[in-house]
C-alpha cells in the first residue's frame, strides 16, 4: 500500500470536514478498498474512517414505514436486525461474503462502490430505495450509472439508505463460489401497485431492471409468467471464464423465476 494519513472522525460533521482535504477518501468497512489499495490499484492522501461515527450506524423505521439503515451499518447488523422487518434484505446481507467480511463491510460502502456483481445494489434498485447523503436524497432509479459508477459526487458520504418494504420479496443468488459474489442474482420486490425486478452480476453496465419481467409479473405474479418470457439480450452481458453472456442471460431468467416462486 502507498502511505496515507488515517483520520477517525467521531461525528458526521467532522467527517464532512475531513473529506475536504486534498485527495481524501472515505473508508467504510475496508473490505473492498483495503485489498484494492494493497494491490496499488487505488491510493489516497487521507483516508477518513467512518467506523467510529455512531450516528450513521443502526436501523429504524420512519413515519412512512420505510426501513432506514445508516450508511455505516455492517452487513452482520442488517442480517441480524432486519430478520423480522425485512427478511429478504436480511437474507441478502447474510449471504454476502463470509462472517468476517460481514462484520466489517457496510451498506454505504457497497452502494458507493457499485461493483457490477454486488448484492445491495439489486435490493436498492428493486425497492427504489432512497440513498441519502449529507447534501441530498437520491432515488435508486437515478443513482446507479454503470459499473463502479454512481450519482455520488466527490466527498459525498452515504449516511442512510431508506427502503420502502415490499409486500413480498426475495433475493435469489447464484453464487460464484471462489469470490462469494453472485455470478448472477435477482431481487424481486412486489408492492401493492407494482412489481420491480433488479438484476446484478449480469450486465457490464452494472445493476439493471428487467422491464419485461416487471410488466409480465405486474399482470400475473407467478413463476409461469417468467417462464413465458425469453431471456434478456445476451449482448452487453459480462463474459468471463466463469460464464459467457448467453449463460448469464439464461441465469437471469432462471433466478427471476426462482425468486418469484420463493415469494409465494
Amino acid at each position: 500500500m502507498y502511505d496515507f494519513e488515517l483520520v477517525k472522525p467521531a461525528s458526521l460533521q467532522e467527517a464532512i470536514e475531513a473529506m475536504q482535504a486534498e485527495d481524501a477518501q472515505a473508508l467504510g468497512g475496508g473490505q473492498t478498498l483495503l485489498p484494492t489499495m494493497k494491490a496499488r490499484l487505488a491510493m489516497a492522501d487521507t483516508l477518513v474512517a467512518l467506523s467510529a461515527i455512531e450516528e450513521i450506524k443502526g436501523i429504524c423505521t420512519d413515519d412512512d414505514g420505510r426501513l432506514c439503515i445508516g450508511g455505516g451499518t455492517t452487513h452482520a447488523m442488517v442480517q441480524r436486525d432486519c430478520a423480522e422487518s425485512f427478511p429478504a434484505l436480511a437474507s441478502l446481507a447474510g449471504r454476502i461474503g463470509d462472517p468476517a467480511v460481514r462484520n466489517r463491510g457496510t451498506i454505504g460502502g457497497s452502494l458507493a462502490n457499485n461493483d457490477p456483481s454486488a448484492c445491495y445494489p439489486a435490493a436498492a434498485l428493486a425497492c427504489n430505495a432512497t440513498i441519502v447523503t449529507q447534501n441530498r436524497e437520491i432515488a435508486a432509479d437515478d443513482y446507479f450509472l454503470g459499473m463502479f459508477t454512481t450519482a455520488l459526487e466527490e466527498r459525498e458520504i452515504v449516511t442512510e439508505v431508506r427502503f420502502p418494504v415490499p409486500e413480498a420479496a426475495h433475493y435469489e443468488k447464484f453464487i460464484q463460489p471462489a469470490s462469494r459474489f453472485p455470478l448472477v442474482a435477482v431481487f424481486v420486490a412486489k408492492y401493492s401497485d407494482a412489481v420491480r425486478v433488479a438484476v446484478t452480476g449480469a450486465s457490464s453496465d452494472g445493476v439493471f431492471r428487467w422491464n419485461e419481467a416487471e410488466a409480465a409479473l405486474s399482470g400475473n405474479f407467478s413463476e409461469d409468467a417468467v417462464k413465458g418470457l425469453s431471456a434478456p439480450d445476451a449482448d452487453g452481458m459480462i463474459s468471463d471464464l466463469h460464464g459467457d453472456g448467453a449463460y448469464r442471460a439464461h441465469l437471469v431468467k432462471v433466478m427471476c423465476a426462482r425468486a418469484v416462486k420463493a415469494c409465494a
Binding site: 488515517l6 473508508l27 473490505q31 483495503l34
Partner: peptide, 19 residues
C-alpha cells in the same frame, strides 16, 4: 488471518491498526 476484534471474527489483513 482471522482474529476476534471486540469478540467478533474479522480478517486482520483488512483492518487498519490505527483504526
Amino acid at each position: 488471518c482471522i482474529v476476534h476484534l471486540n469478540g467478533e471474527p474479522v480478517k486482520a489483513c483488512s483492518v487498519l491498526a490505527q483504526e
